[in-house]
Design a protein around this nucleic acid. Structure first.
Length: 754
DNA sequence: TCCAGGCCCGTTTTT
DNA sequence: CGGGCCTGGA
C-alpha cells in the first residue's frame, strides 16, 4: 500500500495520530495521500472505518475518495462519513432534526430557489428592491451565515444595514415557516446543533478519531469553526491543501485558515508534497517563477524528474478573432499529429471569451465541449417537476408552490396570486393554507391546484420512486404542456431522464423496490446510513440528493471533443496540451481584481492553476484587441507574461510586436505547420499598427503602453483602451494613485512618451 | 396570458 | 454585442 509512495507522501500517510497540515502542490498525489492515509489507519487498526470523517467540497471528489479507499481495502462503504461539507451537515441535521429545530422533511433551497424566496419576501414586505436588490440581500445573508452570524450578531452601524438585518430576520422566519433550508444554513445549523447540544457534540467527538479535510485552502470561516468543534474531543485533524491554488476567496474561502491551522493545530507539523508527476520542467518552472511574485505564501517549490520538456509556446494576434482562428488551426494540427481531442483544453478567464472560440471551432467542424452552464437538476423543466414532488412532501414550501401553481397555465393570474399572498401574510400561514380565503374564480382555480397536489400524493403513495416520478410528470400536465410546445421535445426528454435518475438513485442507494413513501428503518442505528436515508422516504432522500448534487458539470475523460472551460473549472484536472487564452492586462488579471494586492494575487494563483494543468505542451495566447461589451478594446500583454522567465518561452509570433513585414503566423515546430498542408503561406488580414492600433481623440492619438500625465493624478501608463470618439475610455495605471478609468473626451491628458 | 421590444449590464462558482 | 429581465400593450 505504501511502498510505491515517495518519502514525503509516505511520511504523510504514516504520520502518528496527531494534527497535521499537508501542503500538496499541483499534481503531487494529493488524493492518493488522503485515501492511502485512510486505508492505512484502518488497516493498522488505529481506527475503524466508522471512526473516520473525510470532507471535501464537491461530490465528485467525495465519490472519488470513496472509490479509491474501497479499491485499496475491501470495506463496506455504506455508513462511511465521507462527503461534502453540505452533504455531511445535511446528514446530521436529518438525524437530529428535532434538536436542530427543523422538520424532518426539510427541503433544501439551491441558490436560485433562495433568490426566488428572497424576491417573494421583499415583495410581501414592501421593500424597495432598487435600494435592496435581491442579489445583494442574498449576498448579505449568505455572507453573514458563512461567518457564523445570525441577525443579532451582525453589526448594525447605519440605517441601511439595520434594514438589511431586519430583512435577514424576516427571511429566517419565512424559511422556518416553510420548512426550507438554504446552503449556508445547512452548515450554520449543523454548527449550532453541535455547539448547543453537548450530548450530540460529545457523541460525534467520541466517534470521529480522525478528521481529514481536502482542499483546505477553500474552507470558509464557518467550515473551520465546524471542524474545530468536531475535533474538540481529541480527534486528529489532517488537513490537505495548497495555498497557491486558493482561487475562491470571492465566495468566502479564507486562505488564512491554513496559516491559522498551522499555528493552532499542526504546531509546525507541515509536510510538503513538492514532487510533481504531471508536468515537464519548463512548465513547472514557469509556474514556480510566476507564483513567487506572491507574498505571504506558506512556501513550496514544485520539481519533477521528467526532464525539461518543451518551452511554452506564445502567440500574440491582432484581434480576438484571429486568436480564435489560430487556436483552431493549432488544435487541428495537434489532432492530426495524433493527439486525443479530449486531451486538449482551451482555458479562458471569463465565460464571455468562449463565444468567439466556439464559433471558430464550429465553423471548422472541430468537435468541442464547453463546461459550465446549466446542469441537469437546474434545468427549468426539471425544477418544475421537482417543485411538484416537493409540494407533495411539504405543502408549505411556498417557493415550489409559486413555481408551479400556474405552470402549466391553469388560469391563475397575478391578481389571484396577489390576493393569496395578502391572505397568507395576514394570517401568517403558507400560501397553500391561505387558498380557502381567496374568493371567486381565482379561489376555485387555486383549490383545484391544491387538490391536484393532494391527488398526486394519494395516487403515488405505494409506488416505487421511479414510477412515482413518472406519474407526477404525466399527471401534473408538464409532459402534455411540452408536447404542445414546438421546442418542447428536449424538455420532455429531460423529464424522462429524471425517471432514469430516480431509478439510478434507488439502485445506488440500495433501496430495492421499496414504495417511495415508505420510511427506511435501519435497526438500532443512531445515525443515518448515507445521504440521510434512515428515517426518510426514498422521495425525500431523492429530493435532498437533487438539491445537493445538481449534476456533473466538470469535464470527464473519454469525451472525444476538445475541452473548453474557465480556468476555475479546470482546477483539479489535467491535459496533455493546454491553451491559456486572453493573457492580457485587464482580462487576466481581470480589471476588477487589479486594484488591490489581494485581488491581484488571487489572479496570479489562478494563472498558476492554469499553467499547472498542462502535462506536455502549453500555449499562451493573447490578442491586442478584442470585442468586449460591444466595443473594441485594446490591451497590453499581461504582467503575468513577463513574470515567466524568457528561457521558458518560445514566441511563435514576434516578441517585439507585430509588423507588416513578417508573417503573423509561424509554425509551432514539432512537425506542425498550419499552412504546410494548404500549400501557401497565408497571412492574417493586415492590421496596420499605426493606423488602427489605438484611439484618436481630437488631435491626440492614444495607444496602449503610452505614458501620460494628468493634472490631478500625475503620471501613469495606459494599459487599456476602448470605444472611439466621445465614448473613448482609457484605463490608466497611475504611479501614485493606482488604476483609473478616464473618458478621453473629458480628461485632459498629456502624452509624455510612446 | 403572452409576447415583443426596450433596457440594463457585463469575472470567477460549488453546495 | 448579447443575454436576461421587466414592462406594457394586445
Amino acid at each position: 500500500m505504501i511502498d510505491k509512495l515517495n518519502d514525503p507522501q509516505r511520511d504523510a500517510v504514516t504520520l502518528p495520530a496527531q494534527h497535521a497540515l499537508v501542503l500538496a502542490g499541483a499534481g503531487s498525489g494529493k488524493t492518493r495521500v488522503l485515501t492511502t492515509r485512510m486505508a492505512w489507519l484502518i488497516q493498522t487498526s488505529q481506527v475503524s472505518p466508522l471512526g473516520i470523517l473525510a470532507v471535501t467540497f464537491t461530490n465528485k471528489a467525495a465519490r472519488e475518495m470513496v472509490a479509491r479507499v474501497s479499491a485499496i481495502l475491501p470495506i463496506d462503504t455504506r455508513g462511511l462519513w465521507i462527503g461534502t461539507f453540505h452533504g455531511l451537515c445535511n446528514r446530521m441535521l436529518r438525524a437530529h432534526h428535532r434538536d436542530a429545530g427543523l422538520p424532518q422533511a426539510f427541503q433544501i433551497l439551491d441558490t436560485a430557489d433562495q433568490l426566488a424566496a428572497i424576491k417573494r419576501l421583499l415583495k410581501a414586505n414592501g421593500v424597495d428592491d432598487d435600494k435592496y436588490p435581491p442579489r445583494d440581500v442574498q449576498r448579505f445573508i449568505n455572507g453573514a451565515k458563512e461567518d457564523g452570524q445570525r441577525p443579532g450578531d451582525v453589526e448594525a452601524y447605519d440605517s441601511f444595514r439595520r434594514r438589511l438585518i431586519e430583512i435577514y430576520t424576516l427571511y429566517e422566519a419565512q424559511c422556518q415557516r416553510e420548512g426550507v433550508v438554504d446552503f449556508p444554513e445547512l452548515l450554520l445549523r449543523a454548527y449550532e446543533l453541535l455547539s448547543r447540544h453537548a450530548p450530540i457534540r460529545e457523541h460525534y467527538q467520541r466517534r470521529f478519531k480522525h478528521i481529514l479535510v481536502d482542499e483546505f485552502q477553500d474552507t470558509n470561516t464557518l467550515q473551520y469553526k465546524w471542524l474545530t468543534l468536531l475535533a474538540g474531543g481529541g480527534a486528529h485533524l489532517f488537513a490537505v491543501g495548497d495555498d497557491d491554488q486558493s482561487i475562491y476567496a470571492f465566495r468566502g474561502a479564507n486562505v488564512g485558515n491554513m496559516a491559522d491551522f498551522e499555528r493552532d493545530y499542526a504546531h509546525g507539523t507541515v509536510i510538503r508534497l513538492e514532487q510533481n508527476y504531471r508536468s515537464f520542467g519548463h512548465i513547472l518552472d514557469s509556474a514556480n517563477a510566476l507564483i513567487s511574485h506572491n507574498t505571504g505564501r506558506l512556501g513550496k517549490n514544485l520539481w519533477t524528474e521528467q526532464g525539461e520538456g518543451e518551452q511554452i509556446r506564445v502567440v500574440e494576434q491582432p484581434t480576438d478573432l484571429l486568436e480564435a482562428q489560430w487556436l483552431v488551426e493549432e488544435v487541428r494540427g495537434l489532432i492530426s499529429d495524433g493527439r486525443d481531442r479530449s486531451q486538449i483544453a482551451i482555458l479562458y478567464r471569463s465565460n464571455a471569451q468562449s463565444r468567439v472560440i466556439e464559433h471558430a471551432l464550429f465553423s471548422s467542424g472541430v468537435p468541442y465541449k464547453v463546461y459550465g452552464g446549466l446542469r441537469f437538476f437546474e434545468r427549468q423543466e426539471i425544477k418544475h417537476a421537482l417543485a411538484y414532488l416537493r409540494l407533495m412532501a411539504n405543502l408549505d414550501d411556498d417557493t415550489s408552490w409559486m413555481r408551479v401553481v400556474n405552470f402549466p397555465p391553469r388560469g391563475i393570474g397575478a391578481r389571484t396570486l396577489e390576493l393569496l399572498g395578502d391572505q397568507s401574510k395576514a394570517y401568517d400561514t403558507s400560501l397553500s393554507a391561505a387558498v380557502a380565503r381567496v374568493p371567486g374564480k381565482g379561489g376555485s382555480n387555486l383549490a383545484q391546484f391544491s387538490s391536484l397536489i393532494q391527488r398526486l400524493a394519494d395516487e403515488t403513495r405505494s409506488l416505487p420512486l421511479p414510477e412515482l416520478v413518472e406519474h407526477v410528470i404525466e399527471q401534473s400536465g408538464l409532459v402534455g404542456h411540452y408536447q404542445l410546445d414546438r421546442e418542447g421535445a428536449d424538455r420532455i426528454e429531460n423529464l424522462r431522464e429524471l425517471i432514469t435518475a430516480a431509478a439510478a438513485f434507488v439502485a445506488e442507494s440500495d433501496m430495492g423496490g421499496l414504495p417511495a413513501g415508505e420510511v427506511v428503518q435501519t435497526a438500532g442505528a443512531q445515525e443515518p446510513m448515507q445521504e440521510g436515508f434512515d428515517g426518510l422516504s426514498p422521495l425525500m432522500a431523492f429530493l435532498s440528493h437533487a438539491a445537493l448534487e445538481a449534476g456533473d458539470n466538470q469535464a470527464q475523460a473519454g469525451q472525444d471533443a476538445v475541452q473548453l472551460m474557465t480556468v476555475h473549472a479546470a482546477k483539479g484536472l489535467e491535459f496533455d496540451a493546454v491553451f491559456i487564452t486572453g493573457i492580457e492586462e485587464g482580462l487576466f488579471p481581470h480589471e476588477n481584481s487589479i486594484l488591490e494586492q489581494a485581488g491581484l494575487e488571487e489572479e496570479r494563483r489562478l494563472m498558476y492553476v492554469a499553467i499547472t494543468r498542462a502535462r506536455e505542451r502549453l500555449y499562451f495566447s493573447l490578442a491586442q484587441s478584442r470585442m468586449l461589451h460591444g466595443q473594441t478594446r485594446y490591451a497590453m500583454r499581461s504582467r503575468f507574461l513577463s513574470e515567466v522567465p524568457e528561457e521558458h518561452l518560445k514566441w511563435l509570433t514576434p516578441k517585439q510586436g507585430l509588423s507588416d513585414s513578417e508573417p503573423r503566423w509561424k509554425s509551432s515546430g514539432a512537425g506542425f505547420d498550419p499552412y504546410a498542408r494548404q500549400g501557401s503561406v497565408k497571412r492574417a488580414p493586415a492590421v496596420s499598427q499605426s493606423a488602427s492600433y489605438g484611439v484618436t481623440v481630437g488631435n491626440q492619438h492614444f495607444r496602449v503602453g503610452q505614458g501620460v500625465r494628468h493634472g490631478r493624478f500625475g503620471e501613469g501608463t495606459i494599459f487599456g483602451l476602448s470605444g472611439s470618439g466621445l465614448d473613448a475610455q482609457a484605463q490608466i495605471q497611475f504611479r501614485d494613485v493606482g488604476a483609473k478609468t478616464l473618458a478621453l473626451g473629458v480628461a485632459k491628458l498629456d502624452i509624455i512618451q510612446g
